[in-house]
Amino acid sequence: MKLPKWKEMPEGIVILEAGNAQEYETGSWRTFRPVVDKSKCINCLFCWIYCPDTSIIVKDEKMEGIDYAHCKGCGICSKVCPVKAISMVEEGSL
């Protein structure tokens, strides 16, 4: 994002676009990548409720995949998965 010049700053210390951190990609932080085996997934959504990075994509109550643009690869999803449907794979080894 291009940073504003001082004359372009809004009055007050504010960010007016709520939730624009979505534009900032933290996916590059990852060392290990969560990979989902959809054949095992039971859509319990534990991965989703425990994700610190809002990076589990859920549609119509079903786990649809992972938002790799933001996922930091912490591995919580793979640990809370009751059916071991998510494995952590080293980046670059795919």
Binding site: W6, M9, E11, G12, V14, A18
Partner: peptide, 24 residues
Amino acid sequence: HPFTVGPLALQDSYFEFKRSQAEA
């Protein structure tokens, strides 16, 4: 119209905020 008040402004923006304030 939600917005954020009081974010962290580091070396790249703190100065612009203060320069803008000085003008007020």
